[in-house]
Computed example of a mutant assay.
Amino acid sequence: MQPEIYEHIAEYIASEATGKVPEQVRQHVENWLKQSLENQKEFELLKKSWDLSGELPATKPDVNAAWLKVSSRVSTSEKTLKKNQTAQKDFKVHSTATKKATSWFYMRAASIVFLIALGVASWLFVQSNAWLKLQNENIATTSGQTKTVTLADGTKVKLNSNSSLYYPKAFEGNTRKVLLEGEAYFDVSTDTSKPFTIHTGEVETTVLGTVFNLRYFKDESFTELLLEEGKVAFTAAGKEEIVLPGEVVQFSESTEKISKQKNSNPNILAWQTGELKFNETPINELINTLQRYYHTEFTLDNSANLDCSYTGTFNQNTLEEVLEIMQLSSSFTFKKQGNKILVTGQLCPE
Rank of each mutant, 00 (worst) to 15 (best):
K47N: 10
K79A: 15
V63G: 09
K60C: 00
E55A: 03
K92E: 11
T59W: 10
K41Y: 03
T86C: 00
A66S: 13
T80R: 14
W67M: 12
T59C: 04
A65Y: 10
G54A: 05
N84Y: 14
D90H: 09
V70G: 07
S53G: 01
Q85K: 15
K47H: 11
T76G: 11
W67I: 09
W50F: 14
K89E: 15
K60W: 06
S49G: 08
E38A: 06
T76H: 13
K48Y: 02
E38L: 04
L81G: 09
K69R: 09
T86A: 06
H94L: 12
K92G: 10
A58K: 10
W67C: 13
L68F: 09
A87H: 09
V74R: 10
K41M: 05
K89P: 04
Q40C: 03
T80E: 15
K41D: 11
K79C: 04
W67P: 05
A87Y: 11
Q40Y: 07
T80D: 15
L81T: 13
Q35I: 04
V63R: 06
N84H: 12
P61D: 05
K82G: 08
F43P: 01
E42Y: 00
S77R: 12
V63E: 10
Q40I: 02
D90F: 11
V74D: 01
V93T: 12
H94P: 00
S95Q: 11
D62V: 02
V93Y: 14
A87W: 07
F91M: 11
V70W: 07
L56C: 05
H94F: 15
Q88P: 00
Q40K: 13
L52A: 05
S36W: 04
P61R: 06
K83Y: 06
